[in-house]
Amino acid sequence: MASVMPVVVYPPDEGGGRRVRVDGEILGRAYSLRDIAEFLRRAGIEEVDEGYVAMSGLIEWRGGGPDIWEH
């Protein structure tokens, strides 16, 4: 991993999507752990997969953890 960037995953909205913010920038709306992993890869965080997303202590989950996807 090149560097550590603050990652925040916001609570699910009415459609089940969760906004993802990396290093202060909203990257988009995720509907699964796979989506979050892709956002992190695009942000330059290498070797990220769904398991990393679910277990990483570097991700701040707001409104529920990685298993919460419904409003």
Rank of each mutant, 00 (worst) to 15 (best):
V20D: 02
V22P: 05
I45S: 10
V22A: 00
G51A: 12
F39Y: 13
G57L: 15
P66W: 08
E70K: 12
V53N: 07
A54F: 07
G16N: 04
L27K: 12
R29P: 00
Y10V: 04
S3R: 06
A37H: 02
A30I: 02
D49M: 06
E14C: 04
V9F: 01
V22G: 02
G64H: 13
L40A: 03
R18Q: 04
R62M: 13
D13S: 07
H71G: 12
V48H: 05
R34M: 09
G44A: 00
R18M: 05
H71D: 13
L58N: 15
V48M: 14
A2M: 12
D49F: 05
E60Q: 15
R29N: 04
H71L: 07
D67R: 13
Y10C: 06
M5K: 13
R29G: 01
P12K: 00
I45Y: 04
V7R: 01
E25S: 04
Y10S: 09
P12C: 03
G16K: 01
E60M: 15
H71V: 04
W69M: 11
E70G: 08
A54P: 09
E70F: 10
A37P: 02
R21N: 05
P11H: 00
S32R: 00
V8M: 10
E46D: 14
Y31Q: 07
D23H: 08
R62G: 09
V22R: 04
R62F: 04
V4D: 14
V7Y: 03
I59W: 15
R34C: 02
P11V: 00
A43S: 13
R21Y: 03
S56K: 10
D35Q: 11
R41P: 09
D35P: 06
G24V: 01
A2G: 09
E50V: 04
W69V: 01
M1S: 12
V4R: 13
